[in-house]
Design a protein around this nucleic acid. Sequence first.
DNA 1: AAAATAATGTTATATTATAACATAACAAAC
DNA 2: GTTTGTTATGTTATAATATAACATTATTTT
Lengths: 162, 162
Amino acid sequence: MTEQCSHSNIASCTLPSSEQVARLIDQATELCDKRNLRFTRLRRQVLELVCKADQPVGAYHLLDELRESGRSAAPPTVYRALDFLLEQGLVHRLATNNTYLACAHPQQPHAAIFLVCSQCGHTQEVHTGGVIDQLRRQAEQFDFAIEHASVELTGLCSRCRQ
Amino acid sequence: MTEQCSHSNIASCTLPSSEQVARLIDQATELCDKRNLRFTRLRRQVLELVCKADQPVGAYHLLDELRESGRSAAPPTVYRALDFLLEQGLVHRLATNNTYLACAHPQQPHAAIFLVCSQCGHTQEVHTGGVIDQLRRQAEQFDFAIEHASVELTGLCSRCRQ
DNA sequence: AAAATAATGTTATATTATAACATAACAAAC
DNA sequence: GTTTGTTATGTTATAATATAACATTATTTT
């Protein structure tokens, strides 16, 4: 991700080039090391597949790719790896279309907003501190403690609007 | 829904009493009439079931209830009715847990935010013009035209926090 | 090395949703 | 009021997404 990503007030994150995939893997390795967790071959492989995809991918698509790579794999194989990556904040799950995508900023935990194009599927991770903070304040007015915010905006991306 | 609902700047909507269910059905009848759509027995029955539930319900739960009521029903029966009700803005779908709940304000189309308790499942529809407007503005900065906003906040409700 | 823990393999199955085609109900036109 | 077209529903099958449960392997700790 993080092509032109400024991580200032508002940041948008486009898709990863191959060197950036390597960097994300490096970051994940470091991060797991720091947390004393095992970044196994399977977990690395699944993260690579998610990173390399140019769009959010479904679990069974990842399963196919694992199998094509010669590995013996069944649904739990991929779901367990995804669960691990989700817990560590290395990937996000989009509830509106049951897909997974690599997190652009695994270092600092953050709540993100996703712009999902309903036509081409292109998905952008956007960071706008303001919105999430406002949501948190609103929730607090109802004495509600947010554990996870799922904010997914479906619509037409700039390319598909033309 | 709409127990203590002010529909002012911020409005919260609690669960419906039985008279309120009747009112929602009346509103739906009117609305479909106005739009020249058929509010059939099946559609009415499904909306009633969704309204009466004290929490968002799954499609297969509705299916069971339809069958218990004596009606012959299969998955498409309930999904088709739900699709109709969704299109008309009479129910909402929660993507994070694949459930459906009655819309508190079918009259005026609106984007809502949902507070979903991860412990008891209680779900609150909250209307805060501000947040949705802000989301729309943010999206516009990326030349993105929102068609649908799914904003689902998972966490602990006030009762479960204690 | 043995024991304990964590990860993966494997089989089966649960849960959610849709495709495809047949029939029935309804509305419009004649 | 019957024919015709359209919309809704019935019905069967199956797709797509996800998890349970238990066996095996790998890794870490003792």
